[in-house]
Amino acid sequence: MTEYALEVENLRKTFGDHVAVDDVSLTLRPGGSLAIVGESGSGKTTTARMLVGLERPDSGRIRVAGRDRSGAARGRATRLARAREIQMVFQDPYLSLDPRVTVAACVEEPLRLHFAMTSAERRARRDELLARVGLGEREADALPRRLSGGQRQRVAIARALATEPKVLILDEATAALDVSIQAQILDLLAEIRRDTGVAYVFVTHNLALVRHVADDVLVLYRGRVAESGPARDVLAAPEHPYTRLLLHSLPHRGWDPARIAADRRALATATRERPPAPTSEKRSVTS
């Protein structure tokens, strides 16, 4: 039996009366890549935050490398052990890095926290991590404000990789970047996955991206799984009307935004009358 890098069962989270995430299950094999797709309010960010432990689920189970982390962590050692296994890169590199901390110190911090290293070992590991993401000595000494958006996101990736996590959550990690830079970061991420065997969860609203970064995809609509399966199949023959709507919404030549607007209203009306249900069981993610 293969052990999943990440295994989630029937996750649910409510905020007051609002059900943000309802009955979400997924699996991710070691070195795999899963995209969680949806728009604002779909529950994709809440799901991501529960995976890394920034939110506690109301019910459901989360296992990373076979270890359950649904309950509260008892003690510092457990908390650190959990943090080592799963790390996150946030959307906005202008907000996620401390403006007063140099790049070198930023990457050393998790090393200091998680590993007993001499300062020489730590510096060596830091330089290795920075080299891994294509940054050199000059950038290591710099404060974030001296760096471009793409460089900052490289720092965030290096820092996240410092603990040698099994799973990296990328929450719209390239959405704020220029398209020519986004492609560079995607290249880098693909290379890192190949070399280290870390598994990715890409949280994104962009289906065009999914095709190139993920093996599997999970489409969330209003907190529930609308559709899931191998990315190739879901994109080629979407079964849920919401997935189709997302696909049609991508601007392209011959685009008909008026039709998309009409489809969107029809879907909203249909959903009000009958809550969404998964369209097919046969495609549930099993890799």
């Binding site: 728009e39 604002s40 609203h205 962009n206 709507l245 997302l246 049609h248 919404s249 991508l250 601007p251 685009w255 935004p257 008026a258 998309i260 607007a261 969107r264």
Partner: peptide, 11 residues
Amino acid sequence: DVTTQAEVVSI
């Protein structure tokens, strides 16, 4: 959002 974008563009 992408579907909202489509709607606003159509308007």
